[in-house]
């Protein structure tokens, strides 16, 4: 672990993010101000704090859903070397999203006509896995996520909040990304389901995935955190 501790995987340096709201007289709000932190490979890095302190914004800046206003986010990529997520071309971002970086939003956003199984297997198929193999793995994951088999062909839009969130998480974990960004993974889950989340994070770490989580649920997640950052 010594060598990996010396080479970080994500370095956030003096990050600022502000939104200029042109529709409200150009008012500016700045949820992220001069933030710096370093994440090392294989770690579970937990960012916690009240709602509205810019936790999600940091995560979205790393994923490039948000354009950072200033500062840098250095990512040590497996294929592209050390790159700054705030400035690299969109094309590289898309490649990284397919191959290295996973993101799990707070709510499941899917088309209401796609079955749960297809949603689970989509990341695998995108990586080039053949249909049968992907279905096999997808089924195993759905079992693990405690989704009853009679629901597999139905769209998750009809599922309960907890089931939806489990599918959402499963989808993020199934492709075994190198860096996984989790936004409030335990929100809207009961204690049993929270345990599934902890198991997922634990297993992901075991095969080398770095996990960055933002949450207000420090009670559940702090036990598994290698490093914590309070906002």
């Amino acid at each position: 672990m010594v060598t990996s501790m010396t080479t970080p995987i994500v370095e956030v340096r003096d990050l600022n993010k502000s939104f200029v709201l042109h529709l409200i007289d150009g008012r500016t709000i700045s949820p992220v101000q001069s933030m710096s932190f370093t994440v090392f490979p294989g770690q579970h890095f937990l960012i916690w704090g009240r709602s509205g302190v810019g936790k999600t914004s940091v995560l979205k800046c790393i994923y490039r859903t948000y354009i950072s206003t200033s500062g840098s986010i250095l990512y040590h990529s497996a294929h592209h070397g050390v790159i700054d997520m705030t400035t690299i071309p969109e094309r590289v971002v898309l490649q990284l999203r397919e191959q290295e970086i996973g993101y799990c939003s707070q709510f499941l956003k899917v088309l209401p006509r796609v079955s749960a199984l297809d949603i689970m297997t989509e990341p695998l198929r995108r990586m080039g896995m053949d249909k049968e193999q992907a279905r096999e793995q997808g089924s195993a994951w759905l079992t693990r996520l405690r989704i009853a088999p009679h629901l597999w062909q139905a769209s998750p839009v009809t599922f309960s909040g907890g089931e939806q969130q489990r599918i959402n998480l499963g989808r993020a974990f199934i492709g075994k990304p190198r860096l996984l960004l989790l936004d409030e993974p335990t929100a809207s889950l009961d204690s049993g389901s929270k345990q599934i989340v902890l198991d997922l994070i634990h297993d992901a770490k075991a095969h080398g995935t770095t996990v960055v989580t933002v949450s207000h649920d420090i009670d559940t997640l702090s036990t598994l955190a290698d490093q914590q950052l309070a906002l």
Binding site: F19, L23, K60, Y66, I67, L94
Partner: peptide
């Protein structure tokens, strides 16, 4: 990126 355009639009018109 489409998610960026939708979640962090920069230009007044896009907003």
């Amino acid at each position: 990126l489409t998610d960026q355009i939708l979640e962090d639009p920069q230009h007044p018109y896009t907003q």
